[in-house]
Design a protein around this nucleic acid. Structure first.
Lengths: 339, 339
DNA sequence: TCTATTGATTAGAGCGCTCTAATCTTGTAG
DNA sequence: CTACAAGATTAGAGCGCTCTAATCAATAGA
């Protein structure tokens, strides 16, 4: 059996309460006793029992985290940021997934709450708003990549509209006039990206072309084939704003298959700046969201509520940035490319 | 304040002990009482406090998980498998990262242990063996992608030697004789993959060519350039067994840059079957490890020990499989390609 | 009628810790 | 030498639950 505080106290010749004070490094312990306790703890390999501590102190160092999909690199990055911030502040993450299924997410959320966590962070949850509000009645809740109007809920989102605008501005700046968006369908954030695209295009006085697609590489291929079937070579869009990086890669494949060169004939911009985009082989121009930063901000929003420093909800809208690589270029007078 | 068992008991007009029995759905409760308790719990929105339960029962439903690197899709998949199995069995994951730094991993591990978890699962940890053995003295420990001879420790690894052999057999079967391995250097599992490559080559009566590289795309590029500088076009290896998928992608880039076609001139096999490999754009032939399965097995190994069903260590060595896609082909008589 | 017997229910101690309030030490001023 | 404040230490209750052992109710057997 692992040693308890009582064991340490006995060995150090002090009371359990004193050991408790030392463990929480209280200033009101004499140096002699502190040293004795620390030595005894060391010798016994003692480590406080977080659960017992949590129960007795009526406070929790547990943060519940529910992830929409761990396989998605986006969430992995957010969790990284979260973990780093949490560890630095002495919190631990209890992590879960609901596999994108509302019912399972509900169970997962309840499971997190049964830890009586200091707070809960939901990454792009698919549970109904009512479940989120119910959770918010028990502890602070932060939503990442999902909005909410509930008063007890903070949110951290990236500004998808601004991201698309960045892509459009970039292409328009390179001289492109016919630019199409490969829409992400019902995927999280897709609607915002589409809206941002349309608004930016109009701002440039251009006609927004939107092709229904999805956030996969095959989706990108299909969308481009559709485009090729619809437009004559001369009228084909010269710029593509893909729904995400995977979609962009599929689009590029289909373009090359059709004998079009990227970026000489068509420029393509991705979204998310996944590790994929950074590969030399692709060198995809893409929109980057500060994912790790989002995790950090989510943690901070939570901690502010935990510490009671704030009660009004906060809505972070993070600014994406454009990472220019090799899949975009200007248009030459002849319709060819100019880097 | 959230309702406690006492509240439920009062509302249902029974004792706290009875509520406890109902919550653990004991068979020795009359139907009438059970219904009354359940209703009261429902009305109050009561949910047992896991930590209090854990403390009182001296058992834990917490599984500590330390991940080498969350950003790595490999671990994400393993965690997925772990989470699914754990949830099904009523366990919760407390998750951590040490950022590949031994000291930080040590802290992370200690943090996990302070939950007095039912067990701990370490995904490719970089902590010294002594730390692992110390942990094993406190609770069952399962290692994934790392070996150990300690008696209290179970391991789950993929058979890297077999994986490389799969790749070599495939290429040799296609008629390739000059095959090179792009070695992963000090990366986890790299040594095994190299050994497997060498052994398989000798088995086929071929001379194993090993180029020092690393598990990144730039590493793959460099290795191929080295190869190009070393061998004449006629003597250049026609088959490449890359250290992992990223490395393979880099290698392909460099080959194409040099005017060589894949797979017509050179066949390339990756390792890991990441989402990258599945992209149509690449369609990389690669070696797949059953990652989700590894998570499940890790959980099962742990649970067997928790239930006391087993005390001798178990060493799972999982069989990889080859996923043949479009980057490998046979050699034609003229040195050209034949799919 | 009384005692077993079985099944359902509960009292109460205790898990490992924190926290308040009380107690014990000192040092210092009068 | 006494009084008292300030600092250091501790006793003991209690966090929300489980678990053992005791109690209670109801039925059956003699």
């Amino acid at each position: 059996m692992r040693p308890t505080m009582e064991d340490v106290a006995a060995r150090a010749g002090v009371s359990r309460a004193l050991v408790s004070l030392v463990m929480r490094n209280s200033p009101k312990v004499s140096d002699v006793r502190r040293a004795a306790v620390l030595r005894a703890a060391e010798e016994l390999g003692y480590q406080p029992h977080v659960m017992a501590r949590s129960l007795a102190s009526r406070t929790s160092t547990v943060l519940g985290v529910m992830v929409n999909d761990l396989r998605n690199a986006f969430f992995a990055d957010v969790v990284e940021g979260l973990d780093a911030a949490a560890q630095a502040a002495g919190f631990d993450l209890v992590l879960n997934t609901g596999g994108r299924r509302p019912a399972r997410e509900g169970t997962a959320l309840r499971s997190l709450l049964s830890f009586r966590p200091a707070g809960v962070i939901l990454l792009s949850p698919v549970v109904p708003a009512s479940a989120i509000e119910a959770a918010a009645r028990q502890c602070p809740v932060v939503l990442v990549s999902r909005t909410s109007r509930a008063s007890g809920v903070d949110t951290v989102n990236d500004d998808g509209e601004a991201g698309s605008a960045l892509a459009v501005d970039h292409l328009a700046g390179l001289g492109h006039r016919r630019i199409a968006h490969l829409d992400g369908g019902g995927a999280a954030g897709a609607a915002q990206r589409r809206r941002g695209f349309q608004a930016a295009m109009r701002r440039h006085g251009l006609d927004p072309i939107v092709v229904r697609s999805e956030h996969t590489d095959t989706g990108g291929e299909k969308a481009v084939r559709e485009l090729l079937a619809t437009y004559s070579r001369a009228e084909l869009p010269t710029g593509l704003v893909a729904g995400n990086d995977f979609n962009a890669v599929g689009a590029i494949s289909a373009l090359e298959e059709a004998g079009l060169r990227v970026p000489e004939d068509v420029s393509v911009v991705g979204y998310d700046n996944t590790s994929l985009a950074a590969l030399r082989h692709l060198s995809l121009t893409t929109v980057d969201q500060p994912r790790t930063e989002m995790g950090r901000l989510a943690f901070e929003a939570l901690i502010e509520r935990v510490r009671g420093e704030r009660t009004e909800p906060v809505r972070h809208l993070l600014h994406p940035s454009l990472v220019v690589r090799a899949t975009t270029a200007g248009i030459s007078a002849t319709g060819g490319a100019r880097r």
